[in-house]
Amino acid sequence: MSDTSLNSTHEDGPTRRDMIHVATGAMMVGGGAMVAWPLVHQMNPAADTLAMASIEFDLATVPEGSQVKVMWRGSPVFIRHRTAAEIEQANKDDTATLRDPEANANRTKQADGSDGKAQYLIMEASCTHAGCIPVGVGENGYLGAFGGWFCPCHGSHYDTAGRIRQGPAPLNLIVPKYVYLSDTVVKIGV
């Protein structure tokens, strides 16, 4: 083996020869990365999942004072038709101590920043603490100390604008991006 040692002599251009090995090694790493990427990327949402990334919903089907849940991207979304009293309460609470301060008026904005409709509150039905579904109107449950939503898992209280007021959740209920396609039809997910 002694006569075959790689380090024995470097009489005819050591740099060039070493460069070949370095280049070969680099190509091996590059090739590995090329194979690795499809193996990783396949776990991202597939085309059929992405095709279901937006839904259209007719708000006229939700009577005042009630709430429906629609499925969007595999999870429910609250569509709450608020009463005038609830909206008023939410506006009043703009000045209260809020963990995640946000004006009620901003809770009903469309994806492009323009105003939506104050009576229709559209939010992901997922407590920002650990993802449980908070209890809302029409479900015969405790609505929390602020009359909005109450998460039974760890006791988070949300007000009538879906803002976190008490309990472990860090943020207000998330408002998904949506736009009004007509007076009553919204497209959720844009």
Binding site: L6, R17, I20, H21, A23, T24, M27, M28, G30, G31, M34
Partner: peptide, 17 residues
Amino acid sequence: LFLFVFALFTWFSYQSI
């Protein structure tokens, strides 16, 4: 194309070693 160039480099590496 990548594999062809890779093969060339490996070949020269092989010859050199």
